[in-house]
Design a protein around this nucleic acid. Structure first.
Lengths: 213, 213
DNA sequence: GAATTAATTGAACGTACGTTTTATTAATGT
DNA sequence: ACATTAATAAAACGTACGTTCAATTAATTC
């Protein structure tokens, strides 16, 4: 046998990507073999190499596209206003929506970094860094304008990222928890974290633990 | 060759554990071979099987001991008082100290769950569940007593866990960031998250001039 | 000092891996 | 229709994997 009837390069490549995302997110990059992947796609292992030169390149491409899509989504969602609170809220909402919609890809981008070659790792980390920088810039602006009250920009940024990315670890939308409800709660928690002054929560007094030396 | 001079079962087993924790945390369970592990220990691959029947059992033992040590550490650190704020503070402090001290084991317990058989996975998840239940109980008590003000106990618990466990992902103690300083900041952020009220009158103060990058 | 137990080696088993090569068929362009 | 290109299959390459087994030596016991 050779070329099969109805075969189409574009469709096959898309099918490989899709199957790879699902399998790698589920079992891990190292645990998924090219034979497994080919079987899922319904093709012989050799056919994969028409579309992706190596297994690692396939992983890298999936990661790169996910990170670029994340940055692009934020670029689109980013509000025009300079108001730090509005911008931070948009950031959190976009982040949660994006990560819930692409749970598998996010899992891969977070878990499989160590399977990348040094150069590819650096590339992905640069994209990640650019994204986190956006958050830090917001926090700094809010702190300087007085909209936020926080101890440490870097630590707060990491805390927020960990918190809102962690949603995908446990969240499955059901009748009890909706995407909107979860987003609302996480938005509220984020605002507390940065010490945002809102009209609704002025009666709260935050913990007195303050800056260290 | 056979038994080597000075060989000692206890020491060899400890060396295997130690090497396994380091290698698996660094490269991932699937990526580490028994041959690699044996080479690191300075022994032939077959020798490993005197101490651990299979590779997966070795992973399971490392995870189980880590989780049991975590529960045990909390059991020791848990304050006698019923005060929710005091107890939550102790929880966060213990959690961060434990996870920084055992970064590699934590990494393994968080990342390699999918390499466990269903029964072993269930076992580990039960231990983890017991730990998280402690946190939820604290939050519930604090919410009922009025010490805390929060929207959703389950979501807040997950947010806190993600946030304080995330420390090990990026934190390396250096001259700029000490364990104590990071712990203090995370403690403060946790108290904000749960809407803790303090008896000390703390008014809204801008952190502007004291901000760190 | 002989017998027993503990610790390890060396070699091998069967299997699976990522990848390459070559041949073959389907679709496309002329 | 025919030549060309696109898409795949089939088979094989060398390598590495987890694990087992028998043999061998060191330490311990009596």
């Amino acid at each position: 046998m050779a070329r099969t009837t109805g075969s189409d390069g574009e469709r096959t490549e898309a099918a490989i990507r899709e199957a790879a995302v699902d399998l790698i997110a589920r079992h891990g990059y190292e645990a998924v073999s090219m034979r497994q992947l080919a079987a899922r796609v319904g093709v012989q292992p050799a056919a994969l190499y028409r579309y992706f030169p190596t297994k690692e390149e396939l992983l890298f491409i999936l990661m790169r596209e996910h990170m670029e899509a994340l940055l692009s989504a934020w670029s689109d969602a980013r509000p025009a206003t300079d108001d730090a609170t509005t911008r931070l809220a948009a950031f959190v909402e976009n982040h949660i929506a994006f990560h819930i919609a692409r749970r598998a890809q996010t899992h891969i981008s977070n878990m499989e970094l160590r399977s990348l070659s040094p150069e590819r790792l650096t590339f992905i980390l640069k994209l990640r860094g650019a994204y986190e920088k956006e958050l830090r810039a917001m926090l700094r602006e809010g702190a300087e304008s007085g909209a936020f009250d926080l101890d440490d920009i870097g630590l707060t940024a990491m805390a927020i990222i960990q918190m809102i990315t962690g949603v995908i670890v446990w969240f499955r939308p059901d009748e009890r928890l909706s995407v909107e409800g979860v987003t609302r709660t996480y938005l509220s928690m984020t605002m507390r974290l940065v010490g945002a002054s809102t009209n609704r929560e002025t009666h709260h007094v935050h913990a007195g633990t303050r800056l260290r030396a």
